[in-house]
Write a protein that binds this DNA or RNA. Structure first.
Length: 785
DNA sequence: CAGTGAGCGAGCTTCCGCTTGACTT
């Protein structure tokens, strides 16, 4: 039996470490935290110095029992959890739950999973740092108090089951405020002048006027003044430039880059990364550190020299910028730099490749350029046109990796190419000059990944919680991730043309400026985060009553206090008292005094009936109310649709909603009706529902069109049907998305492997259905009734 | 896959951070 039991947080880590240590060591994992505050409201005794009641959750019982058993037999228990606040607390919980006496405990830490690092850690054990543990308890207690006092206020004042918390509420705030900025934004038009010159008879040199024109007349005047102008190179400047690689990935930068380059959601990224980690391909994927271990630096150096040559290597040590970083792990990197690709599904391969490239590139030399700026004089004007070119002299890290950006600014997205050979004073022949109307752009909506970036900048949340936070705010219905169509927008283009390419512009007959309008699509969004009305109402409520918690600096300021506790400079109960006193008073006052938050907005009067029209949120979401509630008459209600919001909807648009449901004639002697449901517009006919294609306006659908849609759907259903039964029309064998299955009334029944769906009899279906009923899918739902 | 939206009251919801399964449609 091993004399030593070493406990880490992650089982994958445990497996690796076991290989480094001899048979005297048994290495096990705690699977993260083993205890948490009890579920209900009595977890924290506020009167009694915030003393906490912990319990081992049921899914952790087996782990704890096993560790208990092993700890009993071991002489020394090495607590090797992560070197941060949470890790220290896990060690303390282990000591408590496993009832480990102080003289059997040795607390050790290491930042990289290598044999020398672990052996050296074992040479330098310490005891549990209780100040750090208290800092964690303060963090845990504060989060529970905030979450479990604030959420019930929302249940009373907005609607049940909502939630609020130190992290999620600020995440929602960012999205709500950004949406309002976008709504308040008015695009300003400016004319941007570009010119193309011919050099040696070829149209090659593109230049731009640095200044923009607000008025179309100014732009026109500028172009007109260029008609008979001569152009020449006023100055030519060549200077070297270089670009350095980005640091290796942290959780947040990996999520951002995987979103931009691979289109992964943050949760998908984490799922795939977890698999790569478990199979030993990459280091730990939940980290805020950009640091690489010495062995990693050496591994990267060797690989770069081997694959690209020594001159491509440059040793770089990165420093983590974020003040909130706890740096218990390395940056995310491949375990072995020699392995350029991995097996597995496409997602794993692509994510690995991204991680490998980024980590390798981070140890490579700069890319070197030669930048040329040209200023072109116009004989008739003071202004100069500018052209810029770039030549790559040495690719350096660009050989493997190029970081992408969120902003695809039209001014920078044009790849700067090489310029033709030019001399100072050289005359240039104008091919074409254009003034194009361009519009200023509103701030960008958040994607999941750009929200993570922002949260990290604010020091809010941790690598392990970015993905869960984003799914929480969506699950609560505060935020919706979706695509939205853009709107067409016209813009003007003024062109100075040369009708005949051989003819110079000066000779162009009347020098007429061609004016055109073109159309572009603006405001189209893909996978962006939009606030819901509930999100906005909850946000405004919290902003009004709990300003302190909603402050972007709240986390940063409590973190500072947690640090002071960790350093033994501050009493943790004192910190909590100072926070909780005023906070709790505020909660009570708000419950007492605040009215219901509905976000109600009056839109005006219905021109037809003269009744009041108002929007607000209710139990079932945002809706319009037409008329007041009174003895004689009830108001009419209509739910808002799709992307409509109580904040932006207008009177006319709101009244449109009362045109539905609408009867549109009959078919097969049954009435048809159009309406809009949870999944979009549909036609209802004979108790059945037929969804209306996305590109059709439900209000425009007439009898004929509706019948067409019904028949279409019936045809499609018939194609999907493999078999029906005379015994019971509710039972069918259908071809589904995942293959054939039995539709048994409302119940879907799987067909066992190896069974030919076409050969099933009605009796078989009944039998299979009953079997399925007898073995219901056990959902891993935590609960007790 | 509709509609509903008053008010009562029982019993429920809820936080953040650390980990990995066992679930399938």
């Amino acid at each position: 039996m091993a004399k030593n039991l070493l406990i880490v947080e992650s089982p994958a880590k445990a497996k690796t470490i076991e290989g480094y240590l001899g048979p005297d060591f048994l290495v096990k994992s705690s699977y993260g935290h083993i205890r948490d505050l009890v579920k209900g409201d009595d977890a924290i005794d506020i009167e009694n110095a915030f003393s906490q009641k912990y319990e081992v959750p049921s899914e952790k019982k087996a782990v704890v029992e096993e560790l208990k058993r092993l700890a009993k037999k071991a002489e020394i228990i090495w607590l090797a959890t992560d070197e941060d606040r949470e890790g220290e607390a896990i060690s303390w919980h282990l000591a408590e739950v496993l009832k480990l006496p102080d003289d059997k405990i040795k607390r050790i830490v290491f930042h990289e999973i290598t044999k020398p690092a672990i052996l050296s850690a074992i040479q330098n054990p310490r005891q549990i740092d209780y100040d750090l543990v208290r800092a964690q308890q303060a963090r845990r207690v504060l989060d529970r108090l905030v979450g479990f006092e604030l959420s019930p206020v929302l249940w009373k004042k907005v609607k049940p089951s909502l939630s609020a918390g130190r992290v999620q509420s600020v995440a929602v705030r960012l999205i709500v405020e950004r949406e309002r900025e976008i709504n308040a934004f008015t695009a300003e038009a400016q004319f941007r002048v570009t010119a193309v010159f011919r050099v040696d008879g070829k149209a090659v040199l593109k230049a731009e006027l640095p200044r923009r024109f607000r008025q179309v007349e100014e732009a026109e005047e500028f172009l007109a003044s260029c008609i008979s102008a001569e152009f020449k190179v006023n100055s030519l400047e060549v200077r070297p430039a270089k670009r350095s690689p980005a640091a290796p990935f942290t959780t947040s930068t990996l999520q951002q880059e995987a979103s931009r380059k691979l289109g992964f959601s943050v949760s998908r990224t984490m799922l795939v990364a977890q698999k790569l980690y478990e199979s030993g391909k990459i280091t730990y994927m939940r980290t805020d550190s950009v640091n690489l271990s010495d062995t990693a630096l050496e591994g990267a150096r060797q690989e770069i020299s081997k694959a690209y040559g020594d001159k491509y290597h440059k040793l770089r040590q990165y420093k983590t910028k974020s003040a909130s970083a706890q740096e218990a792990h390395e940056a995310i990197r491949p375990t072995y730099f020699g392995q350029h690709t991995v097996e597995g599904d496409a997602a794993a391969q692509r994510l690995y490749e991204l991680i490998w490239k980024r980590a390798i590139a981070s140890q490579m030399s700069e890319a070197q350029f030669e930048k040329t700026s040209v200023k072109i004089g116009i004989s008739t004007r003071e202004e100069e046109l500018q052209a810029e070119g770039e030549v790559l002299k040495f690719d350096g890290f660009l050989k493997v990796y190029m970081e992408s950006t969120d902003e695809e600014d039209e001014n920078t997205s044009e790849v700067k190419g090489m310029l033709p050979p030019l001399n100072q004073g050289q005359s240039l022949e104008l091919e074409q000059m254009q003034a194009t109307e361009r519009f200023s752009r509103s701030p960008a909506r958040y994607t999941e990944a750009s929200l993570v970036k922002k949260l990290e900048e604010l020091g809010i949340g941790r690598p392990s919680t970015y993905a869960p936070t984003i799914s929480t705010i969506q699950k609560r219905g505060y935020v919706i991730k979706e695509d939205r169509d853009g709107k067409p927008r016209e813009y003007r283009i003024l062109t100075l043309p040369t009708p005949d390419k051989t003819q110079s512009l000066a000779k162009f007959p009347e020098g007429k400026i061609k004016k055109e309008t073109a159309t572009e699509i603006t405001g189209a969004e893909k996978n962006k985060l939009f606030p819901s009305d509930v999100g906005a109402v909850v946000n405004d409520f919290l902003m009004q009553h709990f300003n302190g918690i909603m402050d972007y600096n709240f986390t940063a300021s409590v973190e500072k206090e947690f640090d002071e506790i960790a350093q033994g400079m501050k009493e943790w109960t004192r910190m909590l008292e100072d926070f909780y006193g005023p906070f709790h008073k505020n909660v009570e006052e708000t419950i007492e005094n605040a009215g219901k938050a509905t976000g109600e907005r009056e839109l005006g009067l219905d021109p037809v009936s003269g009744k009041r029209v108002a929007v607000r949120i209710g139990r079932y979401g945002p809706f319009v109310q037409l008329g007041e509630s009174s003895e004689e008459e009830k108001p009419r209600y209509a739910s808002l649709r799709g992307s409509q919001s109580i904040e932006t909807i207008g009177l006319e648009e709101a009244l449109e909603l009362f045109k539905l449901p609408k009867k549109i004639g009959s078919f097969e002697e049954k009435e048809m009706q159009v309406n809009i449901g949870r999944f979009g517009p549909y036609i209802q006919h004979d108790k059945k529902f037929y969804s209306i294609p996305k590109d059709m306006e439900p209000l425009d659908i007439a009898e004929e069109k509706a019948i067409e849609i019904i028949l279409e759907k019936r045809k499609k259903d018939a194609e999907k049907t493999i078999k029906t039964f005379e015994e019971n029309p509710d039972v069918k064998v259908l071809n589904g998305r995942w293959g054939p299955f039995i539709a048994f009334g409302k119940q879907n029944v799987k067909i066992p492997k190896g069974t030919d769906p076409a050969s099933l009899s009605y009796e078989d279906c009944v039998k299979l259905s009953e079997e399925a009923k007898a073995n219901p899918k056990s959902k891993p739902k935590r609960k007790k009734s």
